[in-house]
Design a protein around this nucleic acid. Sequence first.
RNA 1: UCCCCGAUAGCUCAAUUGGUAGAGCGAGCGGCUGUUAACCGCUAGGUCGUAGGUUCGAAUCCUACUCGGGGAGCCA
Length: 502
Amino acid sequence: MATKTTIDQLEKQVGDTVTLQGWVYNSRASGKIIFIILRDGTGRCQCVIEKDENTESFFADVKKLAQESALALTGVVSKEERATGGFELKVTDATIVHAAGDYPITPKPHGIEFLMKHRHLWFRSQRQWHILRVRATVIDQIRRFFNDNGFLLMDTPLFAPAAGEGAQTLFQVDYFGDPVFLAQTGQLYLEAACMAHRKVYCFGPTFRAEKSKTRRHLTEFWMVEPEIAFASLSDVIDLSEDLLCSIVDRVLRDHLDDLEALDRNIDELHAIKKPFHRITYTEAADLLRGSKAKALLERDLVEKNARVEELNALIEELDATTKAQGVKQWKKDKAIAEVIDRREERSELEEQIRNIPHHMELAANFEWGSDLGGSDETIISRLHDRPVAVTHYPKRVKAFYMREDRTNDDVVECVDVLAPQGFGEIIGGSAREEDYDRLLRRIGEEKLDRNDYEWYLDLRRFGSVPHGGFGLGVERTVAWICNLKHIRETIPYPRMMGKFYP
RNA sequence: UCCCCGAUAGCUCAAUUGGUAGAGCGAGCGGCUGUUAACCGCUAGGUCGUAGGUUCGAAUCCUACUCGGGGAGCCA
């Protein structure tokens, strides 16, 4: 009797007769031998069926199975260098669990619209499988980090009566006839909770009705928010460093194979160590206006133009291959697929090249007082090899609850942590205003309705202390760690502007 | 809300620039004993996003709309 096992256990079972249950990832057959790449959720394994007296009863049926058909295969495990994964199952028995119909996602290139429509099937594909494994570990490490460091989980409501920050970007829902909003942060509730439990965090989905269709935005995403009583801005930054380092270390420990499959530069991740760079907004503004930023963009322009030339030549060459006589079809297929990729790269570069002069202008003419734009963040993060904590933004571009700098009323004690390699903001946090009068004044200045914040003002009436925290976006973190161009691949079912299927 | 790009077979793309709509993959049938996105032969598969316009003639040119992609603003 063969024992049931999974593909991730095969290295301990060489020589044994085992049963694998899984799905046909790909299959190739000739007259008397079938190669099935079986995937079982834990990995992929090549299974070989040779036609003989043992296999005759099912050989023809298995040979006909379409991609993603489900089956159980029994056979002897061997080490096999020729096979993907390094192991092979020589099949002696097979049970067809379900013969699949015409599976839409073939092992050929597909467009993003098609893949998104088939997200429920797409995440069976190899690359998506690796990404979602890393996501699960990132989330697990976040929970562990806080649980192991004395933080208490405090769930905050998803139905919220008023805005946390700005009301324009909230989803309104009908709550038994009353309008309420889907929460875009649990922070205010956490501030109350940290006065009861000192160190707390919340972790859950959050909703933003921002009308942005970019690679960095989802309307529903996951955010973890810690909040600590008796904490200064510097304590908040220390915590963000420790958290990010622990996430990166854990992923490097447990997911090297996934990162390699995703073509992630591992050295760049190994470089993520404390301390991060800390600069003030004012220093960032100087940096933007300075010669380093200018030189970076000028070099960019030269390099990107050179790359476009390179791509032009490459595309021409590949095009010739696809049209040449006597070239094997699979070589043409590969050339066509590469042409598509290279053209996409080229059109992206061309857009970037078009934007660079504008970005240079924005950076060179950056005025103290305005918020850092996306291109500004990219410049700052690319001028550093580790994450950068940018602190002390002008008061008027930040939220009302942020603590005013007691030495300079124009700025607040806040921090944005920018991921390296131009990935941009993954953390936003601050020390919170603990002074009753100052907070009340800020509520007035922002023209918020004081009545909505009476309970929040209570926190400044009864044992108010300095406190602070931050929010970390899970999807942006995963995109950075996995080096993904687009955030939509970091969550099983992405919700974006105008998209909620499947 | 604004700017740029796109829409042709189930999928990914061609169509000599205005002159009879084509290939690969996938699907079906047949062949092949070590394949790595296997290979070889045959078959089926189309209201060229929608609606107008220009023209002897439109997938191709023009206008509007719809949908999608990328970016700006805003943000994690």
